[in-house]
Each structure stands twice: as structure tokens, then as C-alpha cells.
Design a protein around this nucleic acid. Structure first.
Length: 432
RNA sequence: GGCUCCAUCAUCUAACGGUUAGGAUUCCAGGUUUUCAUCCUGGUCACAGGGGUUCAAAUCCCCUUGGAGUCACCA
């Protein structure tokens, strides 16, 4: 079982999408089911509707899952496991208040030393516990030995007990912390491979410590994906437009192209342009680079253009608001100067919109327009051109410039013959 | 600051001890084009620094420097 575990607290981030995509690919490669677990334990931060948004995006990107869970539904298991750990003396009740803890943390920071839980409540007598009516958290006793994480991408890393520390499992409100809920759920779902972002790397020894304390010794494989950096070399955040999957989609990047780029970046692939289905055949987690990768929108655009070129004309025409493959072909002609659906839509739209004509071409434009309105249907551009030349007396620049504006909407653009070929059935509409 | 990880062109990467350090994107120039772009051709640009090991180091080891992630009763 593999799992993708997003929290419904914000817009889908490009890094999340990448994690989901890699899980999907590995699930296919290993022929193991994929679980989508919505991590909704933070009731304050949950946003209504985000869960469905995530699910819709996954399906838009062709990421299939076989199982679905709401983490909050597993609360009874979290509580039972916490009780078990308490009973086994692997965990203890901690009565330290948040204020006390904060003060100690600040003091440590002031003294420039690493903050560690000082063990105040780790060896309380039973009477001290039962007599204490203050709210409490439950903490895991820090492990005795170091914990080594074996990561498919990063290799082996070892963490000392002090760095793992006696961390909190259950909050005063009786709800589990992220690490605890996650560790318990992964165990209960019999997860075999965890693929997630590198920002979870330092949580891994903690989750392993929980598994060890619970006596769970099934081997789980880990793969932590390097962070995606923005232009400044910092982790991509909400501030970066391109970090939002929704934004990329609105800008006119194709899901196929985004997937292609997500697999390409920070990786060695046999080809540069490919589909997810194709990637499943050669994809290998072990080839992924250990260092963070910079997001390069130019490269994405290049890839997007390549996917647009490969797209079925009929499908492309739907994307730009038509249902005629001839318009799809027309759009492909504009691919030379446009790289996204948004740009393509703008190009097509100017063709069908009222034209802005510079004064110097106004006269020629009007003449050509009138002639086109009265013209019989010509199947090829050469005949149409000959007709215009004969009846207008225009030639050279004085013919081509206004003509280009008339049927292309712009002084610059693709070959007029290409334009005409795909537009001839729409000519009267275009010039009206 | 502690912990963990990383280090080849501006960016993504190739090289797995012996190459004029290769490719792609970007950028620039020329050609093509009635036009801009595409396209074609060409060009600029990299082994972070210093020590070792070795006949031989981008590649192995160490140090320095630089970068990233993370250090919550968030996930």
C-alpha cells in the first residue's frame, strides 16, 4: 500500500502534486493500491471544500487511488495506541503548560543552545499523575538508541536520541499530533512505501520511534523528494504564483505537460518529452537527484508547447473554445508564437474580434474587407489572393499588411496561406 | 544556533578514475521568412575553494565555503 496524505488547509501546491504523481507512478509500477488520506486533525485550519478540490485535481491529473480515508475517523485508534504506550511505560503524561514550555524554548534560544524537553514529567510517580488535575499532553519517551533512516533517494541518515527527543503524541485537547496520527495510520494501513516531500524528512525518525515503541517492526521504505526552489533559491511558497497548481492551469499549462515537467525536474530521464503512462515503464526513484531543484517556467513552457503540438486538433479546439478540428489546426499554427492555452486563446480571439487598424492601412483594410464580404468561396489562398489583387489594385506591403490585420488580427503572425487554409470556412465571420 | 542533507553552464542534467567536460531550456548572432515568431546554422556560459590518495581526479577521502530542509500541544 502506498499513500498520499494532504491536509485540506490550502490550495494544492506544486510540490504536493509531485508527491501524488510519484506515488501514483510507484503504485502502478509495484501493482500496489494507493490510499489518499486527508489529514484533517487540525480542525482550526481545515478549509471547507478543499478536500473535494484535492480529489478533483488528482483526477484531472490522472492520478488514481483505490482507497480513501479521513484521518479524523481514525481517532479511536490514535487514542487506543496512546493508552497502550502509556500502559507499556513507553509514553508519559506531561503537565507542563504551553507557557512554561515556550519560556524554556525562548531561554534556550537566548543562550544559543538547542532546545530539548527537559524531562520534567518523564518520571512522575503514579500519585503525582492521578492527583494532578491540570491538562496534560502525552509524550513518547525518547528512544535509547539512535535511529537510522534508510531513504531510497537520500541514502542512510542517523539521528541521535536527543535529536528525536520526548515529543508530544497527544495534545491537551485529546487529539493526536501529526506525527502520531501519521505513524499510527501508516501502520494500520500496512503502508509499504512512503513517498513524501523532503520537509518531512526530520519527522521520519520520530515516526519510526513510534513504530518501535508500538512493537511494529514491518519494514517501511521511504523516499523523500527534494524541495522545489523558486528563482531566489528558496522553497516555493504561496507567494510564488507558479507554486499553485490552480494558477498553472489558469495560465494554460496542460496537466500532461505539468506532469512531464514534474518528473523531468531534478531527475535523469531517457527522454525529455513523455507521458505519465510512458514514464511508468522506466521511472526509478533511485535516479532522482539529492539536491533541490529550481522551478524554471521557461522550460515548462517549452514542454507545454511540445505537448500542445502533439495534441489531437479536435481536443485542442475544445480547449480554445471551439468544436472544430480546423480551429485546432489553426491553433497549432500559432504554437510558433504561443506556448500556453491562455496565449492561444488570446490569438484565436483576436482573429474573431473587431480589428484595430493603424491609420496608414485603414483604406486598404476597408477595401479588402468589402471585397472579402462579396467574394465567392475560394478553396485555396492563391485564388483568394488573386481575386483581391485584381479587384483592389493593391499589391506588396499595401496588400499584405491590411490583409494580415483583416484575417489574422495582427500586423505580425503566421503565414497568410496557413491562416487562410484553416479559416476559409469562417471568412465572413472573421471580417465582419 | 542544533540536527540532517546537498554542491558540473543562468536553469535541468550527462560523465559512474583516463572525453577538446556532452545534451536540453534561456540568451546572443547569421540564414530563411512580404512581417514578428517558428525553423536551420553557429556562438557565449560550468567542474565552489584548498588539501590529500593515484601514473591519472569533475569523479575517492578530508577541511573550508556556500546552499537547502527542519527544529510547535501546524501538518
Amino acid at each position: 500500500m502506498l499513500r498520499f496524505a494532504p491536509s485540506p488547509t490550502g490550495d494544492m501546491h506544486i510540490g504536493n502534486l509531485r508527491v501524488a504523481l510519484f506515488n501514483h507512478i510507484m503504485s502502478k509500477k509495484r501493482n500496489e493500491p494507493l490510499l489518499v488520506r486527508i489529514e484533517d486533525t487540525d480542525k482550526e485550519r481545515n478549509i471547507e471544500g478543499k478536500e473535494n478540490e484535492i480529489l478533483e485535481l488528482l483526477s484531472l491529473f490522472g492520478i488514481e487511488h483505490q482507497e480513501h480515508q479521513l484521518q479524523s475517523n481514525n481517532l479511536k485508534f490514535h487514542r487506543a495506541m496512546a493508552l497502550q504506550l502509556l500502559h507499556d511505560k513507553k509514553a508519559f503524561n506531561c503537565f507542563c503548560s504551553a507557557q512554561t514550555l515556550d519560556a524554556k524554548r525562548d531561554a534556550a534560544k537566548e543562550a544559543k543552545i538547542a532546545y530539548r524537553y527537559d524531562g520534567t514529567c518523564s518520571n512522575l510517580h503514579a500519585e503525582e499523575v492521578i492527583d494532578n488535575m491540570a491538562p496534560f499532553t502525552i509524550r513518547l519517551k525518547k528512544p535509547i538508541h539512535s535511529i537510522t533512516v534508510h531513504d531510497i533517494i537520500k541514502g542512510e541518515s542517523s539521528f541521535a536520541p536527543d535529536d528525536i527527543d520526548s515529543f508530544i503524541l497527544m495534545r491537551t485537547d485529546k487529539y493526536p499530533t501529526y506525527n502520531f496520527a501519521c505513524a499510527v495510520d501508516d501502520m494500520l494501513s500496512d503502508v509499504s512505501l512512503i513517498i513524501r516531500g523532503e520537509d518531512h524528512f526530520s519527522n521520519t525518525p520520530k515516526q519510526i520511534a513510534i513504530h518501535q515503541a508500538l512493537g511494529y517492526d514491518k519494514k517501511i521504505e521511504y523516499a523523500h523528494l527534494p524541495i522545489i526552489l523558486n528563482n531566489e533559491g528558496k522553497k516555493m511558497s504561496k507567494r510564488d504564483d507558479a507554486s499553485s497548481v490552480k494558477w498553472l492551469l489558469e495560465e494554460g499549462y496542460l496537466p500532461e505537460a505539468i506532469c512531464n515537467y514534474m518528473i523531468l525536474i531534478g531527475n535523469k530521464t531517457p527522454h525529455e518529452i513523455f507521458t505519465v503512462a510512458n514514464a511508468i515503464t522506466w521511472f526509478d526513484l533511485a535516479t532522482i537527484s539529492k539536491s533541490p531543484a529550481h522551478f524554471d517556467i521557461d522550460k515548462l513552457k517549452f514542454i507545454n508547447r511540445e505537448h500542445l503540438k502533439m495534441m489531437d486538433p479536435k481536443e485542442l479546439s475544445r480547449y480554445v473554445g471551439f468544436a472544430d478540428e480546423e480551429i485546432g489546426r489553426l491553433a497549432k499554427v500559432f504554437l510558433d508564437e504561443a506556448g500556453t492555452l491562455k496565449e492561444l486563446r488570446a490569438k484565436i480571439s483576436t482573429i474573431f474580434s473587431p480589428k484595430e487598424v493603424p491609420e496608414e492601412y485603414r483604406e486598404g483594410f476597408d477595401v479588402l474587407r468589402e471585397l472579402t464580404l462579396k467574394a465567392p468561396h475560394y478553396d485555396d489562398y492563391e485564388s483568394y489572393k488573386a481575386y483581391l489583387m485584381q479587384h483592389s489594385g493593391l499589391k506588396g506591403k499595401n496588400l499584405f499588411k491590411p490583409l494580415r490585420i483583416l484575417i489574422g488580427g495582427s500586423e505580425h503572425g503566421p503565414e497568410l496561406s496557413d491562416l487562410y487554409t484553416h479559416l476559409k470556412n469562417y471568412l465572413k465571420e472573421v471580417v465582419k
